[in-house]
Design a protein around this nucleic acid. Structure first.
Length: 153
DNA sequence: GCCAACGTTGGC
DNA sequence: GCCAACGTTGGC
């Protein structure tokens, strides 16, 4: 099993929104970055665990856990000309953008803030805290996953 | 709102 | 294939 971190701006889509979905499940659309797409297309498996990260907000950080419930398939918003994620260069016979389905698992009592993560020496190697990282989907090493889980207690 | 750090685009 | 210009992300 693999571990991941997925970013979302809570103003656009928060972990509470996920919790309020029918079946607590949503399709993770709108990712328009090739590295992130490749991971969702090739590497994310059913049952993989996901840290839900809130970005661009007052206290950025990890707010809870979701899990992958459906493997990657073409993101329908790329073909929807009314969507802000519309990509006129993507063709249905050769879709460019892929998303996965994720399901709510839990919300941490307190946000594990980016600041806390930065201050933890054990997490120095995390992709999240490396300079200039802007990926909205990234892998998390198992030891980092465990370290962060312990911080959430 | 600022701006560093990217990623993408397009002229050449 | 290079690279300048431009757009986006996301912390602060």
């Amino acid at each position: 099993m693999n571990y991941w971190l997925m970013k979302s701006e809570p103003d656009a889509y928060s972990i509470d929104d996920l919790n309020n979905e029918k079946n607590k499940t949503t399709f993770w659309d709108g990712v328009r970055n090739y590295q992130a797409r490749n991971m969702m297309r090739d590497d994310m498996q059913i049952g993989d665990k996901v840290f839900f990260y809130h970005s661009n907000c007052k206290v950025p950080g990890i707010v809870g856990i979701a899990k992958v419930v459906k493997r990657g398939y073409p993101d329908p918003t790329q073909f929807d000309s009314t969507s802000k994620y519309f990509d006129p260069k993507s063709k249905p016979e050769n879709p460019r953008w892929i998303g996965v389905e994720v399901k709510y698992e839990k919300r941490f009592k307190d946000v594990i803030s980016l600041e806390q993560i930065k201050q933890n020496p054990a997490l120095k190697e995390m992709q999240l805290v490396r300079k200039g990282n802007r990926l909205s989907v990234m892998p998390v090493a198992e030891k980092d996953w465990q370290t962060i889980l312990a911080m959430g207690k």
